[in-house]
Design a protein around this nucleic acid. Structure first.
Lengths: 256, 256
DNA sequence: GACTATTGCGCGACAATCGCGCAATAGTGT
DNA sequence: ACACTATTGCGCGATTGTCGCGCAATAGTC
């Protein structure tokens, strides 16, 4: 993990970086950590890891039985600060509502964070009970229309970098699991100017998304809608959805 | 802000506490901060606040135009670590699914964090589009059945402390906005052993919740269900919902 | 009961963090 | 246009907070 830090050393708070590393060391596979395991996972010494865990415990972000440490719901405050403060999801909300009502599906605003798509705003419900579609949830960008829409705006070099060494997990029998198939989805999206994905993450569900840019051209996210596939051709769904998505796109462009 | 820290000074990482304070300084009313405003809001000096913001920026948790700083979606990773690692929401999930399917509403698992209810697991959808019912969302405990259920298990002293100096915001014309009314809700819940709230947060919506305890008796959270009120008496709704909630309660009791 | 792996904690040393204070800049009003 | 105020970035010397070693104690295994 070599990182180029051209930041003046005197403006770098080592303790904060390590502390955040400790919080992120908790995950699915490691729901509870001891001082030693935390040290191993974060690459800091055991003494230090223990100090960070104790500090987090006294701040209320982790709890402990003396041996093991685990995160408390207080850490959710940190993520929630983003929703409270970010203007992007808030600006998108009324447009999402209009889309979800008109189309009868669920509308999302998503952004890219490193390699993942993160859903930061939502309106409307659908029969899709997939836990992936929760605010703050992150998914590999190739799995959802919003992700492919954003990838399609990147330069070939960035896309190559994104694809390199990536493992594709099949969520349905239709999930694109080869680099070529994923690349085709991205190319299709670029050519069309919108992304259309079917049954990649959930069976019988279709996603349509358009990338959202600032006036400067910079990508800030994507607006997407999830629709049930049954009883509707993809052409018909696109014809219904695209005008609304475009409308949101233009409105949001001037908002940023 | 006098805090009693009987923790050995040598096990206290000051930089981590300040850094987290800086992240939490971003909120609804202060979506973007400068070094100076961050300093004022966190109580640390301007130089230090600037150092923390720069560190967060280089870690990717905040972005900046050079003057103002704002949070990026990366901070959502921190909150997500909790969902990935916490066993409580995961243990509750199958029960929530059973409840939501059987009752046709949305089922939640909620915990208390300080004074707020935090929803940490959900299954099923309802016509309730309230943004409050999102994973990680926090609400004043008196507004939702799950919160009242948990409050009803606290000691009188704890309840008094919770009530003291609290402002009650009316979300609907039926919201309990006086201390007496809130107290009555809590007392009713204690007497019945479950909480029943109607139209406190959303019109035409009824919530029913039971507190979840460990075997030791310690409260770990509450399971709740949101149901539309129309066409059903409260007695009938309770009769339908309570057996399922109790079933989840007993199952979860042995899980912790 | 010896073995290994882990833990809490004290200590001395070092470097990382501190906040002052300067100069430069941005924004306001007369 | 001018001074006036409130910012800002940044250098510096001082000190305090963080480091990781190493010990003794404990927990778990064969």
């Amino acid at each position: 993990m070599i990182e180029k830090i051209d930041l003046d050393k005197r403006d770098w708070i080592a303790g904060l970086e390590k502390g955040l590393r400790v919080i992120e060391a908790f995950n699915d596979a490691h729901p509870r950590l001891t001082a030693s395991t935390a040290a191993r996972r974060t690459g800091i010494t055991r003494s230090a890891a223990r100090r960070y865990l104790l500090t987090l415990q006294h701040l209320g972000y982790v709890d402990s039985d003396g041996q093991h440490f685990w995160l408390t719901p207080k850490v959710l405050r940190l993520g929630w600060s983003y929703f409270d403060s970010a203007k992007v999801p808030r600006a998108a909300q009324p447009h999402l509502q209009r889309i979800s009502v008109a189309l009868g599906g669920a509308a999302f605003f998503a952004v890219l964070d490193e390699d993942d798509v993160v859903f930061v705003a939502r309106d409307g419900f659908s029969q899709i009970q997939n836990v992936g579609f929760v605010l703050g949830a992150r998914l590999s960008a190739n799995l959802v229309a919003a992700g492919v829409a954003m990838l399609s705006c990147q330069s070939p070099a960035e896309i190559d970098h994104w694809l390199s060494g990536r493992k594709f997990v099949a969520y349905t029998p239709h999930t694109a699991t080869t680099e070529a198939a994923v690349r085709e989805n991205i190319n299709n999206a670029r050519n069309r100017g919108y992304a259309l994905l079917e049954q990649q993450l959930t069976l019988s569900v279709r996603g349509i998304a358009v990338p959202i840019r600032k006036r400067s051209g910079e990508i800030v996210g994507a607006v997407s809608v999830s629709l049930p596939m049954e009883g509707e051709t993809s052409e018909r769904a696109v014809a219904r959805a695209l005008p609304l998505l475009r409308e949101a796109e233009y409105a949001l462009m001037s908002a940023f």
